[in-house]
Each structure stands twice: as C-alpha cells, then as structure tokens.
Computed example of a mutant assay.
Amino acid sequence: MDPSKTALILIGYQNDYFSPDGVLYSVIEASTKSNQVLENTVHLLSELVKTPTLMVATPIFFTPNYDELTEAVGILKTIKEVRAFQANTAGAATIEQLKPFEENILEVPGKRGFNAFINTNLDNILRKRGINHIMLAGAVASVCIDSTGRYAHERGYQVSILRDCLSARTIFEQEFYCDTIFPLYADVIDHNTLLENLLVPA
C-alpha cells in the first residue's frame, strides 16, 4: 500500500453526530461507543500525519432554511426536521477530537447528501494528486459510507472501509454492513491492520 497514493476520507465527524449535545447523537451513540470510533480515529490520524497520506474531511452543511432539501425523504427529512448540520452552528462544526489535526486535514465542502463525491470537488482533488486508493471512516455506515464507497469503486478507486472507525444506527447494522455489504466492493479492515500495511517500507 503506497501512502502517497492513498487518501483517508472522513465523513460526518461533526458535533450533531458525535457530540453528546448533538441532535443526532443518539442515532449512532451505541455503535460509536461499542466500536470506540473516536478513540480509534484519533489514533489513526496521529499515525497518518507521519506519512504522505492525504486526509480529507467532507462535512455536510445546510442553509438556515434548508433550501437544498426541497423534497427530502428518509434521513435527510429527519435532518431537516431536527435542524441538524446547519451552517455556522456548533452542531455542524468539526468535533473537538479532530481539532489537533486541522492543519493536516483538507476540508472539501459541498456535500449535501449521502455521497461525498456529489456536489463536491473531491474526485478532481484525488485525481490531481494521483490517489488510487481511498479509505473511509465516519458515519453513517448504511448511508454516507456505503453511498460514497460504492461510487468510488465504480469510479475505479480501490476502497478500504475501516470497520473500527465507523458508526452505524445500530450495532447490528454496523456488523451486517461490514460482514455482508461492504465486502462486495471494498476491503474491510480495522485501523491497526491498515496502519501495518501502510507503514511497511517499500
């Protein structure tokens, strides 16, 4: 695994999901705690900063009136109803645990739905940097992680999904997607195994 051609895509690491004060915290709380997602993510980042691996955050933001969600259904309807991820609010801000790595993480704005590639410049950024392998971490397994992973695979990227840096709506959902769905198009590994492979001298 060549770190210079690898990117970590961080999805949903915002207060409305991961802070106890977040309006959607309860949605992924059990899975986050069971998998020690935040602790594992911090450990992963602390090691990746020593490498040329590109680290990218793709936060989701909405205007105060949620004009972007004209006919929202499902989880996007819920986001609108509870007024989550509203731009320039504490809930939409990056979680404190990632603040020490701010200078090392490239923020790519524009995400409005499930797929981190849609309405963003993510694909162009990765192509220009010669990235051919992406790793996914964050929330939510069955929605943004799956949508982004499938799209990346179809665009020709090698995809790895970090099962212990991943939150889902339930522990069952997290295990089901990691064991049954993600392996259809991606490698599913824990972050320590990834680091072992990434840090092996060429």
Rank of each mutant, 00 (worst) to 15 (best):
T94L: 10
P52V: 02
I9V: 13
S147Q: 12
G113Q: 13
A202W: 11
G149P: 00
S167I: 03
V188W: 04
I105A: 03
Q174G: 13
A186S: 11
E96W: 05
N65E: 13
N104T: 05
L122E: 02
P100C: 03
I118E: 06
I171K: 08
K128W: 12
H43G: 13
G138F: 00
I125F: 10
N65W: 08
D164A: 00
C178F: 01
Y157H: 06
H133K: 14
L44H: 11
N104Y: 06
P3C: 00
L184K: 15
K5Q: 14
Y66M: 14
T70Q: 13
L76C: 06
A168S: 12
S160C: 02
L48R: 04
R150Q: 11
I75A: 13
C144H: 05
T180C: 15
L198A: 14
A137R: 02
Q14W: 05
G12K: 06
N40V: 01
A168E: 00
T94E: 10
L8V: 08
F172I: 11
E154T: 06
N132G: 15
C178V: 01
K111Q: 09
V56D: 08
G138C: 04
F101K: 03
T53K: 02
L126P: 02
R169Q: 12
L195P: 02
G74E: 07
F176P: 12
N192F: 04
T89N: 06
T89Y: 06
T180Q: 15
H43F: 08
N65M: 13
E103L: 08
T58R: 09
L8G: 11
N119V: 08
N88S: 15
V82Q: 10
N197Y: 04
V188N: 07
E196P: 04
L162T: 01
E103W: 05
G12I: 00
V73W: 00
S142F: 11
F85A: 05
P109M: 01
N192T: 07
L45R: 08
E39L: 03
I11M: 09
T170N: 07
I131M: 13
S46R: 15
S167N: 09
F61W: 14
H43L: 10
Q36P: 04
V140W: 00
D21H: 11
F61C: 12
V23E: 14
A92N: 12
F101I: 02
D21P: 07
R112F: 08
I118Q: 05
I161T: 04
A141H: 05
